[in-house]
């Protein structure tokens, strides 16, 4: 029983970071109708910059500066790359291929500038795990969870309760109409990309202290983030948060109990190393959800079936 609780909590804490990456995806996908496949690579690049800053700065300053750098990188990418896609090609394939190009560019820059070796990332609350009646909670995980939750809350408040958020939502809903209503939509796009990549950067910095910092640290996380975003129907913030946490729990439990489940079901094979299946869960979640509930667990019915 303690082990079950332990695994659930660990999974939920880790899962919150998927939600943060997923939120970045949702913010960008909402405003610009582009699924950014370069999200993870950009986040990792920013995390490396933050790492080099943290070699010289105290943690809070480095973290804040890293987030700002991420925002600037996102806004610049929108201004210098995404906006250069010809207007009539904005929908369809070209933006997606552009984001794949971004994936390569930022991955290459990371490896080219910082090399491929792993680096330890500074932790603000180092120390032994907290013991709650036999359930151990790592300080790094707890910190990660706290920051993720705060970020999600901040974004929610921004989008739901400020005029800027209203205008951002309007731009996402109908760009031409927003432009004609006097909204400088190009600046809103920059803002959305900035916010999206800031999410990726924060997630990168949180993950790096949990794992260690490598150029492809976030590749798999991107898939989990997509899965989390799909749980929210690619347009719901709360759904993405719940999706991320659920996915983390599912992963964590799979890693321990999959063998038992298989035995309990009397399936004709054995699972000796269930932790190998942890990452495949995201794939299963995406595929099953798209079949069963394409609008996500929380999304409104927007996805059009053919």
């Amino acid at each position: 029983m303690t082990q079950l609780l332990q695994q659930t909590i660990t999974g939920a804490l880790t899962g919150s970071v998927y939600a943060v990456v997923g939120l970045g995806l949702v913010v960008i996908a909402q405003a610009t109708e582009i699924i950014n496949f370069g999200q993870a690579a950009m986040g990792t690049f920013v995390t490396f910059i933050a790492w080099s800053l943290l070699l010289r700065l105290p943690y809070p300053a480095g973290f804040l500066l890293g987030t700002i750098v991420a925002f600037v990188v996102g806004a610049l990418v929108e201004r210098l790359v995404i906006r250069m896609v010809p207007e009539k090609e904005r929908t369809g394939l070209n933006p997606l291929i552009v984001t794949l190009g971004l994936l390569f560019v930022f991955y290459g820059l990371t490896v080219g500038i910082y090399g491929g070796q792993p680096h330890p990332f500074p932790q603000p609350f180092a120390g032994p795990p907290i013991d709650l009646h036999g359930v151990h909670i790592g300080r790094a995980s707890l910190y990660l969870f706290g920051v993720s939750l705060a970020l999600v809350l901040a974004l929610y408040l921004l989008f739901r309760h400020t005029r800027l958020g209203l205008v951002l939502r309007a731009t996402a809903a109908n760009r031409t109409a927003a432009e004609l209503a006097g909204v400088p939509t190009d600046r809103m796009m920059m803002l959305a990309w900035g916010l999206g990549i800031a999410c990726a950067g924060v997630a990168g910095m949180l993950l790096a202290q949990l794992l260690s910092l490598t150029p492809n640290m976030m590749d798999v996380v991107l898939v989990f983030a997509f899965a989390a975003a799909v749980v929210g129907g690619l347009d719901s913030m709360v759904g993405t948060l719940v999706g991320g946490v659920l996915l983390g729990v599912l992963q964590s439990l799979t890693g321990v109990y999959l063998g038992n489940v298989v035995r309990w079901l009397h399936l004709p094979f054995n699972i000796a190393q269930p932790q190998q299946y942890r990452d495949l869960i995201a794939l299963v979640v995406i595929v099953v959800l798209l079949i069963v509930r394409p609008q996500g667990l929380f999304g409104r019915k927007r996805v059009v079936k053919l």
């Binding site: 209203l166 309007a170 809903a173 109908n174 109409a177 004609l180 006097g182």
Partner: peptide
């Protein structure tokens, strides 16, 4: 063209940008 998912008042507020 209007912002279908926003309320009437929110639509107007966007116009007041």
């Amino acid at each position: 063209p209007l912002f279908a998912d926003l309320t009437v008042e929110e639509n107007l507020m966007v116009g007041a940008y």
